Computed example of a mutant assay.
Amino acid sequence: MHIPLPQPAVGTAKILDGRVALVTGSTSGIGLGIARAFAFAGASVVINGFGKPEEINDTIEGLQKETGATAVYSAADMTKPDEIAVMVNLALETFGRLDILVNNAGIFHVGPIDQVSAEKWDAVVAINLSSAFHTIRVALPAMRRQGGGRIINIASALALVGSPLTSAYTAAKHGIIGLTKVVALETAEQNITCNAICPGNVWTPLAEAHLAEQVKTGGLPREQVIRNVLLAEQPNKRFAMVEEIGAFATFLASDAAASITGAALPIDGGWTAH
């Protein structure tokens, strides 16, 4: 597996110094990678997601020790608008502002469309799409009052193309692109940008577990499963690393990206170039 990209040393140029970021679904995987990148760049961060309390505490303490940033945790359930509002208010009450919002929380379900239950559809859409609407709705007034902000929605390559057996997820991620464009247009003159990152396959604990399951059940060599099954649609035949997503999100959150808004930006190894 590819070696993660090195992290910048604490004390180097901090392009997000003094800013406050809220990253949903950030106790592991892509969300945690983005939160770490923001913290290294000087931002204070609000972490959100599920997990065992002791593991979350370890994550927060490790993040603060590693980066020197301040981090707090919200246990908000992203299917519940009232809890989402409390989470956004936590950021504002703790730090006095909210500069960066990353909507990363998501779940995935695989199955033929006629076998997807109404409950599963509703859950996938609630977490992957509706939660982004609820966070943006609550965060925008604060961003407007303080004179600007950055909203980054984590979509997917499946926000740009279709894939069998992923009806709820693909529909929700396509919806994220539409939401991104509308928010960008409504905030275009307010120093607020809204963009969507569309990752392909990313190396996360979930991807690692899925790989192990595929190797076990399929009886194929690990590298063959990676190349011909998991990365079948990804021309570069490698997983992206969470550090790559974090670095790109940091750029989009910075002053250098002030003119980028309303965009759906793939990090997919050429998947959507087909």
Rank of each mutant, 00 (worst) to 15 (best):
W121K: 15
N104E: 09
H109D: 10
P141E: 15
G147P: 10
I107H: 01
I136K: 03
A118P: 03
Q146S: 04
A105F: 07
S130C: 06
K120N: 09
A123S: 09
V138Y: 03
A105K: 09
A132L: 06
V138N: 08
F133S: 14
L140W: 07
I107G: 08
R137E: 09
R137C: 08
Q146F: 02
I113D: 07
P141Y: 10
A139Y: 10
G148F: 00
E119K: 07
D122E: 13
L140T: 15
I136R: 03
M143Y: 13
G148K: 06
R137A: 12
I127A: 02
W121F: 13
I136S: 11
I127M: 02
I107P: 00
A105P: 10
V110Y: 05
W121H: 15
V125D: 01
F133M: 12
A123R: 01
V110P: 01
M143H: 14
D114P: 02
V110N: 05
I127W: 00
H109L: 04
A139M: 12
V124G: 01
F133Q: 14
R144E: 14
G106D: 09
S131K: 00
A105N: 12
S131N: 03
D122I: 12
V116S: 05
Q115D: 00
K120G: 01
R144W: 08
H109G: 10
Q115Y: 02
V110Q: 09
A139Q: 13
S130K: 12
S131G: 01
V124D: 00
P141M: 13
P112D: 06
G111T: 06
G111L: 08
A105Y: 05
I107S: 05
Q146E: 07
V125G: 02
G148I: 04
P141F: 08
V125P: 02
A142D: 15
V138S: 12
V116M: 03
A126W: 01
A123T: 03
I136P: 01
N104R: 06
A142R: 14
A105Q: 11
T135D: 05
G149H: 02
K120C: 01
N128R: 06
F133K: 13
A132I: 08
F108W: 12
A123W: 01
H109T: 14
G147Y: 10
R144G: 11
Q146N: 06
V124M: 03
G149Q: 00
V110D: 06
H109I: 06
N104W: 06
A105W: 10
G106A: 11
T135L: 04
S117P: 05
I107V: 05
G148V: 00
V125A: 02
F108I: 15
D114L: 05
Q115M: 00
P141A: 14
A123L: 08
A132M: 09
F133T: 13
P112N: 05
S130P: 04
A139F: 09
D114A: 06
D114W: 07
S117A: 08
A118H: 09
